[in-house]
Amino acid sequence: NITNLCPFDEVFNATRFASVYAWNRKRISNCVADYSVLYNFAPFFAFKCYGVSPTKLNDLCFTNVYADSFVIRGNEVSQIAPGQTGNIADYNYKLPDDFTGCVIAWNSNKLDSKVGGNYNYLYRLFRKSNLKPFERDISTEIYQAGNKPCNGVAGFNCYFPLRSYGFRPTYGVGHQPYRVVVLSFELLHAPATVCGPKKST
């Protein structure tokens, strides 16, 4: 009989979020998941679920829940969905086509923008091939755009693969920082350890 609540607040209220190319993952297990707390949290810009209804989450049990978190621009949030393409979905964070879970995003301009620009948040701009679902690539190898080998030196046709967002408070909404948490639900042939409040007695 599990009684402790799942530590969703640790994920959602973290002081610093990860850059999207180096997205953070927390495994959540052996706890009671009260999703209504999240669902009623006012400032969400997006709360979209795939393969599961957000209002039914509290009735369900899962083997594991993974909480992935990172920061992207407002106009990139739409790429955090199954079957998407674009710089983020291709080179930074890719969801599987059969994704079961929820994508939760909110504007973090007050936290993550600075006058003069916040350059701490990076994304991958160049990559030889697209990421596989949930693949994480933190390499900083110089990207070779031409035929000539770069030998690890940036220059003509040789690019550092990461780019900084440089968030400023005055940017338009599409270019403002958004914090994103992706909850993915794993249902294995194993005992369920993460259940909603109704199922955990």
Rank of each mutant, 00 (worst) to 15 (best):
E186L: 00
V71D: 02
K198H: 13
C195T: 11
C6D: 05
V52H: 03
F17H: 03
W23T: 04
S129A: 12
V194P: 12
P197M: 15
Y159V: 12
R27P: 06
G86T: 03
I2R: 14
C102E: 00
E141S: 11
Y66T: 13
L122W: 12
T85C: 06
N118M: 06
A22E: 14
Q79Y: 01
P43V: 03
G51F: 01
V181P: 00
P191A: 11
L162H: 04
N130E: 12
I80E: 03
Y123M: 08
P149K: 13
S69Q: 03
R127Q: 04
E76A: 02
Q176Y: 01
Y159Q: 13
I138R: 09
N157T: 09
G117V: 08
V153Y: 10
K199I: 14
K26W: 04
L57N: 03
K148P: 09
A67Q: 01
N40Q: 14
T15F: 00
C102Q: 00
A22P: 02
V37A: 14
C61V: 10
T63M: 07
P161W: 01
W23N: 04
F99A: 00
Y165K: 04
A33D: 05
D90Y: 05
F70V: 01
A154H: 12
G51D: 03
C49Y: 00
F160L: 12
I80C: 01
G146S: 12
L122G: 15
F160T: 14
L187I: 14
H175G: 11
N75D: 15
T140V: 09
G116M: 10
T85A: 09
W23P: 05
N118C: 06
Y123W: 06
N58I: 06
A14I: 04
P191W: 05
L131M: 08
N87K: 11
R25F: 02
V77D: 02
P177Y: 04
I88V: 09
V182D: 00
A22Y: 07
S184Y: 09
Y93R: 02
T100K: 12
K94S: 06
R16H: 15
G83I: 03
N58W: 06
N87W: 10
C31P: 06
C6N: 06
G51T: 01
P191L: 04
Q79H: 04
D9Q: 13
R168E: 15
F126R: 14
Y35D: 06
G83T: 05
R179H: 04
L183D: 00
S78T: 09
G117K: 08
F70D: 02
S19G: 04
P169L: 04
N30S: 07
P149G: 12
S139C: 07
V20E: 04
V52G: 02
Y178T: 10
A192L: 12
P133F: 04
A81F: 01
V103P: 00
G172H: 12
N151A: 12
W106G: 00
N1A: 08
Y50I: 02
N87Q: 12
W106D: 00
L131A: 03
G117Y: 07
N87M: 15
E186R: 07
I28P: 02
G174I: 09
G116T: 12
A154L: 13
K199T: 14
Y171M: 15
K48E: 09
P7Y: 05
P54T: 09
V11W: 06
F185K: 00
E141Y: 07
N64C: 11
K198P: 13
H189L: 09
F134L: 07
Q144A: 12
K26E: 06
